[in-house]
Design a protein around this nucleic acid. Structure first.
Lengths: 206, 206
DNA sequence: CATTGTGAACGGGTTCACAGCA
DNA sequence: TGCTGTGAACCCGTTCACAATG
C-alpha cells in the first residue's frame, strides 16, 4: 500500500477523481463506490480501486468510500490541502481571461502576481492586480513562496522566459505557449494548447 | 505500413510532430532526422520512426525526412489540409479570449459562429462576430459544414448544451467546462481544464 | 451480500537491435 | 556511413478474478 514511486499516470487521474467526488458532495451524496465513480469518469471500477490502493485503504467492503473522507485524502495526497500562489506571466488577452477567472480560489489556487515586459501593460490593473515589470521577478519571487507559474507569453519568447522562471525558483510551469519547453528534470511542465487538441480531433471526424 | 486501426496514442502525437516540424521549417531547415525531432519533443528516435511508419515510408535512409514533405503528409493524415470551421459556444470571458485569438487561422481552423443564451450578450460583437442566440443552432448548424465546437459554458449546463450540439450534428467537442461529458461513442471529446493540471503539478512540488 | 484490495494474467505500447538502403 | 523501417523483446499499465470483510 505505501509504495515507493507512484506512476505519474495514476497521479494524473487523482484530480479527476477529486473533481467528480466534489461534485457528488455538492449534490448531497455522502458515499460512493468504485463502480459509480468509474462510471462517471469513464474508468473501470478495478482501475479506481487499484489507483486508490496505491495510497492507502480508503474504502470499506460492502459500503464503498466515504466521499468527504476520500476528498480529504486526495487533497492531502495532491498537496492541495492548502492554498497555492501562482505567478501569471504575460498580460495579453489570455492572461486577462485567466486573471479574471474566479474558479481557482475555491480549488486551492490563487493568482498572486502578474508580470509582463510591455511598458504599455505594466502598471495597468487586471483582475484586481497591477501588472508588474517582469524584471522584478528576481526581487519578488524568491522568498515569496510562489512555486507555480502560468506562462501566457508569445511562443517566440517562451523558452527564455521559462529559463528566467527556473532561475527564481519556480518549480512548475503551466505553459500556454505553443512550444515544447526544454528544461531540467526537476521542473515540472504541463501544456495547454487547443490547436494540438483540435488537430487531434479532426482525425476522427467523418 | 498501411494499418487497420491506428492507436489513438499515436494520433495524439502527430500534432506535436507537426508543430515542431513547422517551427523547423520557419527556421529555414529543410531536413530532419528521427533523432533530432525526438530530441526537440522529448521522445526517442525509435518512437518517432515507429509512429510515422504506421502511415507510410516518409523518410530516406542516410538522410532522414524532408520537412516540407513530412509536414504535408501529417497535415493530410490529420485532415488539416483544409480549413475547419468552429462553433464557439459561450461568450463569457474565456469565449472572448478564444474569439480574439488569432493563432487558429494559419493552422487550419477558424471561428465561424459564436452563440450564447444570455440576452445581454446576444447581438454584441466579439472578435468580429455577432453573438447569436443559442436557439439558432437548429437552423444554422445543420448543412453549415461546422463539425467542431468549443464549449466555454458554465459547468452546470455543459452536459445539456453538449447534448444539443450532438443533435445538430457536431462531431467533436473541445470542452473547457470542468465536467466530464457523457456522450455517445461517435462524438469525440477533449478537455481543457487548467485546474486539473495544476492539481497534478502540485504533487511534484517540493 | 455488496464491495474492497490485490496477486496474477493479460494486452498493448515502447525500446531494442539490426537488416536494408541511399 | 548514416539513418530508416520493423520484427522481437521488453516493460508497464489495465483488467481479471477472488479472498477478505464490514
Amino acid at each position: 500500500m505505501v509504495s515507493e514511486v507512484i506512476p505519474d499516470i495514476i497521479v494524473s487521474r487523482l484530480p479527476r477523481y477529486l473533481q467528480a467526488l466534489q461534485r457528488m458532495h455538492q449534490e448531497g451524496q455522502s458515499t460512493t463506490s468504485s463502480k459509480e465513480l468509474g462510471g462517471r469518469l469513464g474508468y473501470t471500477a478495478a482501475q479506481i480501486r487499484k489507483d486508490l490502493s496505491q495510497f492507502g485503504e480508503f474504502g470499506k467492503q460492502g459500503t464503498g468510500y466515504s466521499i468527504p473522507f476520500l476528498v480529504s485524502q486526495i487533497q492531502t495526497i495532491l498537496r492541495i490541502d492548502r492554498m497555492w500562489d501562482i505567478l501569471l506571466v504575460g498580460a495579453g488577452s489570455l492572461g486577462h481571461a485567466i486573471a479574471n477567472y474566479n474558479g481557482f480560489t475555491n480549488r486551492g489556487f490563487r493568482i498572486a502576481m502578474i508580470v509582463d515586459n510591455d511598458p504599455d501593460k505594466i502598471g495597468k490593473k487586471i483582475g484586481g492586480f497591477v501588472v508588474q515589470d517582469i524584471k522584478n521577478l528576481k526581487n519578488q519571487i524568491p522568498g515569496s513562496g510562489i512555486k507555480i507559474a502560468m506562462l501566457t507569453v508569445p511562443a517566440s519568447v517562451a523558452q527564455v522566459v521559462a529559463e528566467d522562471l527556473l532561475q527564481v525558483g519556480i518549480q512548475a510551469i503551466l505553459n500556454y505557449a505553443p512550444v515544447p519547453l526544454s528544461l531540467p528534470e526537476n521542473i515540472y511542465v504541463e501544456y495547454i494548447d487547443p490547436l494540438i487538441q483540435l488537430q487531434h480531433m479532426t482525425y476522427y471526424i467523418t
